[in-house]
Design a protein around this nucleic acid. Sequence first.
DNA 1: GCCAGTTTCGCAAGCGCTTGCAGTAGACGT
DNA 2: ACGTCTACTGCAAGCGCTTGCGAAACTGGC
Lengths: 343, 343
Amino acid sequence: MPPTVEQVAERAKVSVSTVSRALRDIPGISAATRKRVQEAAEELGYAISPSASRLATGRTRTVAVVVPLLAKWFFAEVIAAAGRVLSQAGYDVLLVELSTPELREAFFAGPRLHGRSDAVLVVALQLAPDELAALQGQGQAVALVGSEREGASSVRVEDRAGGRAATRHLLNLGHERIAFLGIREAEGSPLGGVPPAERLQGYREALVEAGLPEEPALEAAVENTVDAGAAAMSAFLTAAEPPTAVVAASDELAFGAVATLRGVGLSVPGDFSVVGYDNHELAGAVSLTTMDHGVAEQGRRAAEAILGALSGAPASSGRIEPRLVVRGTTAPPRRLRRAAQTN
Amino acid sequence: MPPTVEQVAERAKVSVSTVSRALRDIPGISAATRKRVQEAAEELGYAISPSASRLATGRTRTVAVVVPLLAKWFFAEVIAAAGRVLSQAGYDVLLVELSTPELREAFFAGPRLHGRSDAVLVVALQLAPDELAALQGQGQAVALVGSEREGASSVRVEDRAGGRAATRHLLNLGHERIAFLGIREAEGSPLGGVPPAERLQGYREALVEAGLPEEPALEAAVENTVDAGAAAMSAFLTAAEPPTAVVAASDELAFGAVATLRGVGLSVPGDFSVVGYDNHELAGAVSLTTMDHGVAEQGRRAAEAILGALSGAPASSGRIEPRLVVRGTTAPPRRLRRAAQTN
DNA sequence: GCCAGTTTCGCAAGCGCTTGCAGTAGACGT
DNA sequence: ACGTCTACTGCAAGCGCTTGCGAAACTGGC
């Protein structure tokens, strides 16, 4: 039904090879001929057959995007941003969600991308060396978001600095008992390796720098959900000497923490301060103080790295510096404010 | 680099046609031969070339998913659910985000999907007749989520019933001045046509049934964001005779409304009740009473409809009945509770 | 042990595009 | 006016797989 090069050639009174070259702006075709061909194509409503083109060239002009979980804001945002630059550049985006260990295993077991994409954008997954090799073995250029591997481009966040900054913010406000609400892998999750571990390190560093002791009781690690964050917050509150502030490794955990605190009648930030991590789409809605790590930018830069790699550029390795966004869930601890008032 | 049918054929000592048939479970191959071929393929790590197969068959085993905005929870959730059933069925998922009117126009102007997918899953976009025709003209089977068109499968939500149920819930609690916080298209948005209009209708119906007057001043229509919801809520509060409850056409608007209310010191649900619409991932976090309309199920069913259409089934047209999820943002109006106390 | 009827396979012609190489036609110099 | 270059364009051989059709092998029945 759709016209082929042949029909365009016929109409433009040239050979198919000329059509092919004219339409792809390949030199060696006179301007006049090129124009004639383009017009013929236009009139016929010609559209190239991707399959045929791919078969002949061996390249697909498609990049696969693999994520552990599509419905999480972070991943969706990264994909959206990456997708825009990719499709802008004329690439198709193939979506791959690896939401269970089984899917992950199956995906890396065979050459599942062979002939489907030229490159892969891997978000958040911590690839094992052989997994990376499996991808590259299929001739895929690979770019990583949220991890770093030899031989692949990557975009990472300075999470340690981020964790430290979040914690410092609370220290500067006068808090001295600050908890950390971290992320632990859920059972069925395919992430494999927890990148935000650096956030915890940053937190610890900040405490040490401030001359405060590390207290294991103030560190939790739970599944990255609102409910888990809420539960963990409850646990902190039952401590003998509860913290007065918490830095959460994600905004979702922070949401949960805030919910718990307000639920038991505590005021945030009056009685307790919370800082999140992500600058989630809805962070503003609850006025959450949080670390912004340019989620969309991560996607954008990874996509650009891929485009670069596809045109022969060497692997690049970018870093993003998170920055604190102060909103309404952080304030000096009550003790200090009382003191200030009595001044 | 990767092996081809030819090499498999050679190793299994059969012809390429036999390999092709054996690997695809096409009858006419003896069990013994089939096994031999499969083993040979296995040993060689053979993977079919999609391009070649597509070129030869004309089918791509790919379905395109088009959404207006990927990073919104609703869309991401629908895609995730649909993607799971599609990839389970062996289909690739091609992602298309039409986030601006320009992109939308360009997309429908040419045969952009020709040879790229066998079917399209259109989420939320209200297709103009010629847009639908453009897709079908490219030989695409099409399934719609959130709209309905002659000649295409679709999955829709009984939004009118949903709007009515949400409103009734508030009426039953004793509210008499209930506002509606609706969705209006943003300027640069490609949605084109507002499906949730039915939610407003349901709201009005419920009021009429309860013998209450419709008050235009109690109906707002804003962009579907937390901030816009917050602003609209502020407007409601400045009314001469403010409402005591609001039904929002989305959870995001509801989040904004709640934020405004609590921001000015009003208690929710003590002083004001709010019911949302979506049962957003984070609705639980703020304990939002809302209408659940099975978002994942919409994706799943649409994907199933597509698979059906691809195997020759006639267009189907499913409906989903939303249900109320009562959480913590709705309660009787203060007036009534006082009365109850004095009892 | 021979023939008709089944199975099981292989041949070869595409599918629609790309590209190395060869051929043709102007352009230019002398 | 003729040879030499350069600039265009066409030929044809793939790319790796599918599939209609005919050939070969095998099954029984007699």
